[in-house]
Amino acid sequence: MPFINLPLREITCKIVYYGPGLCGKTTNLQYIYAKTSPEARGNMIALATETDRTLFFDFLPLGLGEIRGFKTRFHLYSVPGQVFYDASRKLILRGTDGVVFVADSLRDRLDANLESMENLRVNLAEHGYDLDTIPLVIQYNKRDLPNAMPVEELSRLLNPRKVPEFPAVAVKGEGVFETLKAIAKLVLQKVRSG
C-alpha cells in the first residue's frame, strides 16, 4: 500500500525481493546500497544469522528523486529464503506494492525456484494479493555460472505471465539496476492507475 504524505509531499512504496535461499536477494540490495550516493539512500539494515544468512529481513530505503514535486521513496526489503523461515516471509509481504522474484539459474536449484514461486503465491494470497496481478519482475541470477539453465527454459517455467525479466550477475551488479528500475516503474504505473 503506497503511503502518500500530502503535507510533506512524499510517496513511499514497498518492494520485496523474494526467492529461494542463496539466490542473491541480499546481494541485490547490497549492490544497490554500494552504488547509490549516500544522499539518495538511508542505512541498510540486515537482520542476519551469525553465518550471514538472512534471519528476518534486509531493509534499504532509497530516494529516487521527485515526480511533480513529490519525493519518491522506495523501501526495499528482502525475505529470508530458507524454507523454514516461512512465517517471517509472510510477515514481510504485508503492504508490499511490488515483488522482485530472484531466481537461481543453477539447474539443481530449479525445484527450489518453483517451490519458492508457489510459496510466494500462497503468502501473497494471505494478504489478499494475487501473484497474477501484483507488479512483478523476475531476475535470473548467477548467469555467469557454467551450469546455469538457459534463460528461455527458466522463463517458460517461471514466467507464464510474461512479466519483465532480466538476466543478472548480482555480485557484479549486472542486471541489478535494470531489475530495480523495472519494478519501480511498474509500481508507479499501478499507483497512477489508483
Partner: peptide
C-alpha cells in the same frame, strides 16, 4: 480518494531514472 498521482505520465516516471 483519487490518487494524487493519477496525472503522472510515463515520461515523469522515466525521468526519475
Amino acid at each position: 480518494l483519487p490518487s494524487p498521482f493519477a496525472e503522472i505520465t510515463d515520461e515523469d516516471i522515466d525521468n526519475l531514472f
